[in-house]
Design a binder for these strands. Sequence first.
DNA 1: ATAAAAAGTTAAACTAGATTAATATGATTT
DNA 2: AAATCATATTAATCTAGTTTAACTTTTTAT
Lengths: 198, 198
Amino acid sequence: MIIKEKGQLLLDYINRYVPLTEEEEQILLSKIGYRTYLKGQFVVQQGDICKYECFVLSGCTKTFYMDGEGQEHIVMFSIEDWWTADMGSFITQTPADYNVQCLEKTELIMFSYDIIEDLYAAIPKLERFFRLIIQNAFVASQKRIIRSFSLSAKERYVYFRNQYPKIEQRIPQYMIASYLGITKEFLSKIKSELIVEQ
Amino acid sequence: MIIKEKGQLLLDYINRYVPLTEEEEQILLSKIGYRTYLKGQFVVQQGDICKYECFVLSGCTKTFYMDGEGQEHIVMFSIEDWWTADMGSFITQTPADYNVQCLEKTELIMFSYDIIEDLYAAIPKLERFFRLIIQNAFVASQKRIIRSFSLSAKERYVYFRNQYPKIEQRIPQYMIASYLGITKEFLSKIKSELIVEQ
DNA sequence: ATAAAAAGTTAAACTAGATTAATATGATTT
DNA sequence: AAATCATATTAATCTAGTTTAACTTTTTAT
């Protein structure tokens, strides 16, 4: 059971999509977990089975894939009011393709695989809530595929900087390069070109 | 109202995720549309507001984005038992980023934006059904992003060929190149290298 | 059967971005 | 304050994939 004050951030978020009754809020709070991770700790490790969908209350995580050559490829960053997990592993309960690691001290609300079906049964509205959330995530993901094909590295960086100014400030540049799918050296070159241009 | 025989393909598909009662099946069939398109026709055009989520009964569509330079970027192909639409446009009812065009004579079942909320109200199970479908689509989309960064063009082509052998056979090669994010000339080169290698 | 259009191939010249390696800056620890 | 470690920069060389253009094969229409 989570303390009411922490849970409120999540309830506010959910209520933006589906209004919950007092009773439903109580049920929800009774079924979710809360946990703090320190900088550097892993929420999910590649190969493990992902047991939790997590809502970020504070802090920041990176979700990344380690390829055969030991190269890290960052798929996404998650900050306050975002979600984090390996959804593929969570929904199929098979080993995770991704790692989720905290870049700062991070507070999470955790929806366990073992209780989420009970939660859907108790509060059917949550089926709708998660459908809406995932729809948005899917649309964003499709748009990212388009950008990866139709924009140059410089254009993708400018897009990222405009879209997520808060994230750029708190994350080292070499991780942003990884997220953009380029080397840190090339991002450095892009940045110096942008300074000259403007 | 759609004829029962056609609707059955969709009902079988839905029943794999959520079992429907006879009555629910009747309601569903009464609320969906059916339409045939000819080769070359557009189901959605960039700039229009996407009014329908479509389930493919037969045929094949491509979903693509036309960039500023008039270059076509194919995001996905949809064949039997798949979905097609610009989901971003559908859920937000804003102008579509994508075109959906038929590559063959194509039969679609259409879920209209104007009735889909009624359908959720009448059959709450469908919230779950669409959540599950979209979850899968999102996971596939995330994996595609990873492939676009961590695999070479040749590796991506081999992956595509293994994953979607049925699609490769019925689609011109230059469209596969577009889907893979490379030029048709380079795909041609990759194919000749693969022949030499094996 | 022939012409025309669409799709696919090949090869040379070119470029966006990778690789390597050396150097610089900044943060953290002692 | 010095030493160490993580992060960022710069520049030379290299490569995967693009561009352009000429040519071949396949499909479609008449």
